[in-house]
Amino acid sequence: MATKGIEESRRNFIRKAAAAGGLLATGLLNPFNAILYAVEKPTDPTKHWWGFGIDIEKCIGCGRCANACKEENNVPREPFYFRNWVEQYTIKNDGSVKVESPNGGIDGFVQTVPKEDIFKAFFVPKMCNHCYKSPCVQACPVGATYETPDGVVLVDETYCIGCRYCVQACPYGCRYIHPEKNTVDKCTLCYHRISKGKTTACVEVCPTQARIFGDLNDKNGELVKFLKEHTCLVLKPHLNTGSKLYYNGLNGEVR
């Protein structure tokens, strides 16, 4: 039938036009590929995709991780600058929650709630979640913070203008303004160590192996094993940040 022939040629034309248009568009948009193609887990299994695990059930709240982080990365010693820190959560029998973190836990913790009032208490170590859809990276107006191809969120100190937008944008409170450099500073997942095959300083000193650093792309790696054997959650999953910091034993009260 005649109409069928016309229909077919029209369909072919549309198909070809769409293909040509697509090619043209990708060619033109190629310079903007940083915006178009955010980093994702590499399909090549030999490429790294760094992540982190924290086992709350094993954390004894000694605060050595927070201390080691400051020592390794020359973070100011004053008690308000942290790349990582430990929070003490105490859920009382009446349902209220008390969260404390005196000096990030570096000087140790004391339980300030009397034992008979405690329903549940535990420690939650916090640090950068190294999200792969990072709100902080999206907020940066100059491109001074970025996600590396292996999934680490880093800061370009020389390029940061200290505008503090990213500090506001991070839903986990993991950034601070360095008082001397006046630029933003945050956990680099000890990028200088992990790229030399070492583990991070906080993992190095953890006495109970509550912290696990590893490669999510390595099927036989320690982190993948940890995720297989435990029921892990990320913080604030509803924000769809693409967090790669996995907690075992995370209580619903943890913010």
């Binding site: 940083a34 020389t158 990028y191």
Partner: peptide
Amino acid sequence: GHYRFNSIAENKEK
């Protein structure tokens, strides 16, 4: 991407 590529190497050097 929308950042200084050399910054990765600088972060590694620390």
